[in-house]
Design a binder for these strands. Structure first.
Lengths: 139, 139
DNA sequence: GTGTGATTTGTTATGATATAACATCACAAC
DNA sequence: GTTGTGATGTTATATCATAACAAATCACAC
């Protein structure tokens, strides 16, 4: 259902993917750009094009509520994944949950809606921040 | 769980809410601004402040994947609603679904994540566009 | 009705995110 | 070697959002 493209990853897409994978947490296009200025990349369109290629292959996701991008943990499910975003520490955890997916699919069917992509983003507090009494600063 | 504020809606918030309700589909902050220039509103911060007030009251929602805002259909559930967005005709339908909500809550509990807000956005094709053979133009 | 504080509003400027448009390059197919 | 396609570089600009500060308005005690 995803990752249909088996052709070789273009150079810039590979650079961006590597950057995101190392980064670990979501990065904005401009953070990626800043991180790759030494590698011949100098302008936003280059980043956005590379991101488009990664998104098409399921190798990265856009986190809508952060206007940011992450390398993908499980490319096989890129059309129905989700993110849990801690508002205290900024950590983002990707998940794929069959219960949520089936509930969403049932809903879409009931509404006679042909789903192509599902965005699920949970904003809240992660366990680590709750356990430390919420005094963790954002970053 | 939402709409805790019972104080009177400020003038600009009321203007923006009325605009969104008439508009029917999601509008960007700048579309709202353009629609209200005749009413003494002349700059983006005024719109964003009014939107913040509406969001806090559950009278409007932000559609993350469109960077746009809609008036709310059912204020009682504003922390766990969803949108079905047709990529062909641009229509947006709001929904609240207990199955999806409970699946998300179960997932969050399993992940030990304290959910404050849930974003669910389905992108795809609405029944009307499917039935008309996808030849509907975007707008 | 006057003072006081809180909220709302107006205004200018700027920051942050994303894309249009067009030229060039790399490479495979023929 | 020409042609077609996809990738890349570059400049400029469109779009979305907020910082910072001043002024107006409102609620309410006195």
């Amino acid at each position: 259902m995803a990752s249909q493209q088996n052709s070789k990853l273009p150079k810039n897409a590979a650079l961006v993917h590597t950057f995101l994978a190392k980064h670990g947490s979501p990065a904005s296009a401009y953070e990626i750009l800043d991180g790759l200025r030494g590698k011949g990349i100098s302008a936003p369109p280059t980043i956005y094009r590379a991101l488009d290629q990664l998104l098409a292959r399921g190798l990265a996701h856009r986190v809508e509520s952060l206007n940011a991008f992450v390398a993908c943990d499980h490319p096989a499910h890129d059309d129905a994944n989700g993110f849990a975003i801690c508002q205290d520490c900024g950590s983002v955890r990707e998940f794929t949950d069959p219960e949520v997916v089936s509930a969403v699919n049932a809903l879409a069917k009931a509404q006679d809606f042909d789903v192509r992509h599902v965005t699920i983003e949970l904003a809240g507090q992660c366990a680590a921040c709750r356990d430390s009494g919420s005094e963790v600063s954002h970053g």
